[in-house]
Amino acid sequence: MLTVRLYMLQRITALLMAPLVLGHLAVMIYAVQGGLSAAEILGRTQGSVAWFLFYGCFVVAVSVHAAIGLRVVVHELMGLKGTLLELFTWATAAGLFLLGGRAVMAVTLS
């Protein structure tokens, strides 16, 4: 149920996510160790183009990567195929994108 296009998309988004996950973990540890409050964190992220791009890329990569992965799982384990499988894939990607996008907007828009 994976074409070469979906396979490559999943691998490329995985490559993208690897440094982003490490960056995210580093930021979390830094914020916790430094004892930053929520207001102090938002003060640094809101209005920052860099943090918008960092977490924006993360959300796009996660939406694509997870939707393709779950597409394989529901096809092989639950037998979903055809239009329903396409709908599931797109709905998963759109759902994750909306949820993640909303969070990114809230944290980075001033």
Binding site: M1, L2, T3, V4, L6, Y7
Partner: peptide, 9 residues
Amino acid sequence: VSGKGGCHN
């Protein structure tokens, strides 16, 4: 081998 039933599965 690059279609929906191909090697990438």
